[in-house]
């Protein structure tokens, strides 16, 4: 097997090497139960990263996801009593609409997605702060259990949040590889002008891609809200950068067109293994951020496929 053929598997190899390395230092890391709880804990991050994949896959970026998730935690908490389980629909619709608005501003108004989504995030933040009255709200425990207890149950040792993540991953994977929409996304990501010339309705595809990332952000926010049993305009803070890092480490470059949702799965796992490895290896709390940055540089250097990049910007 030639070296070139191995390139798509670099993220996988990095992940396995990392797991084995940490396992060698601390064998308890390799136990099944610790792994399952580790993976179950990161489901909201993974869902957010899945959504981010669509925005990055077409060569854009979505910086509003964290604020959309924040807004959704507040919406879910405030309207849970009134609408029960259907509050989920409201949340997802809100995420879809905010994402679509970002997409419209980017494609039709020529505002780079970096700024358009950042600004839409501020607008969502305003909504969250207004709705929550600038307080941390908590859910009515009975209403929460009646509507959303299924989210965090456990069947035969498999946590339900993992099942949800699996279903969403399958859905995203199906969209990306088995539908014309997925093909169109790839076309837009690898060459927008060529996509326009071949008659694709590029604007609609891009708006939909951003709407999808907004939708996933909303689902992640809903899970946060149920898990922590409350809503707050700052609840999901800190997840945006991690979601971007997860997508990039997985091997989906910012230029778009390459990579995809499976890469994001691997990328999220790499990020989580690095983070939890520091706990297992008993690295001092003040050192963790720095070590994370250094390992990240090494991981990115190892995983990204440079064969399709002529210029590295």
């Amino acid at each position: 097997m030639r070296f070139e053929n191995l390139k798509p598997y670099f993220p996988w190899i990095t992940l396995v090497a990392l797991v084995l390395l940490v396992g060698a230092f601390n064998p308890s890391f390799l136990s099944l139960s610790s792994m399952v709880s580790l993976v179950a804990d990161i489901v909201p991050l993974f869902i957010m990263a899945l959504g981010m994949t669509f925005a990055i896959y077409i060569g854009g970026i979505d910086l509003s996801m964290q604020q959309v998730a924040n807004l959704v935690t507040v919406v879910a908490t405030v309207y849970l009593m009134q609408f029960g389980v259907f509050v989920g629909l409201i949340c997802v619709a809100a995420g879809f609409l905010i994402g679509a608005a970002s997409g419209w501003i980017t494609t039709r108004q020529f505002v780079p997605s970096f700024v358009a989504t950042l600004a839409m995030g501020f607008i969502a933040l305003s909504g969250a702060r207004f709705l929550s009255g600038e307080r941390a709200l908590s859910m009515n425990a009975e209403a929460r259990d009646a509507s959303f207890a299924w989210m965090f149950g456990n069947t035969g040792g498999v946590p339900h949040e993992m099942v949800i993540a699996g279903v969403l991953l399958a859905l995203a994977w199906f969209l990306q590889t088995r539908t014309t929409f997925g093909r169109a996304l790839k076309a837009v990501g690898s060459g927008e002008l060529a996509a326009i010339s071949s008659g694709l309705n590029v604007d609609r595809i891009k708006i939909l891609a951003f709407a999808l990332s907004g939708t996933f952000a909303a689902i992640a926010g809903l899970m946060f809200s149920v898990k922590l049993s409350g809503g707050d305009a700052n609840l999901a803070n800190g997840f945006l950068i991690l979601a971007i890092v997860a997508v990039l480490v997985g091997g989906t470059p910012l230029t778009g067109g390459v990579g995809g949702v499976i890469n994001t799965l691997v990328g999220t796992l790499i990020v989580v293994v690095i983070r939890s490895a520091m706990v297992y290896l008993e690295i001092d709390a003040t050192m963790q951020q720095m070590v994370f940055g250094v390992i990240l540089i090494v991981a990115i250097a190892l995983t990204i496929d440079r064969s399709k990049m002529r210029i590295v910007k």
Partner: peptide, 27 residues
């Protein structure tokens, strides 16, 4: 140097360096 020599796109290289910087200040 990390961006140019390791051929890592500046977005990622600088983002990771930002983590290192914040971490260093913390240390």
């Amino acid at each position: 140097l990390i961006h140019v020599k390791l051929k890592i796109p500046s977005f990622m290289a600088s983002l990771a360096m930002g983590f290192v910087g914040t971490g260093l200040a913390m240390v």
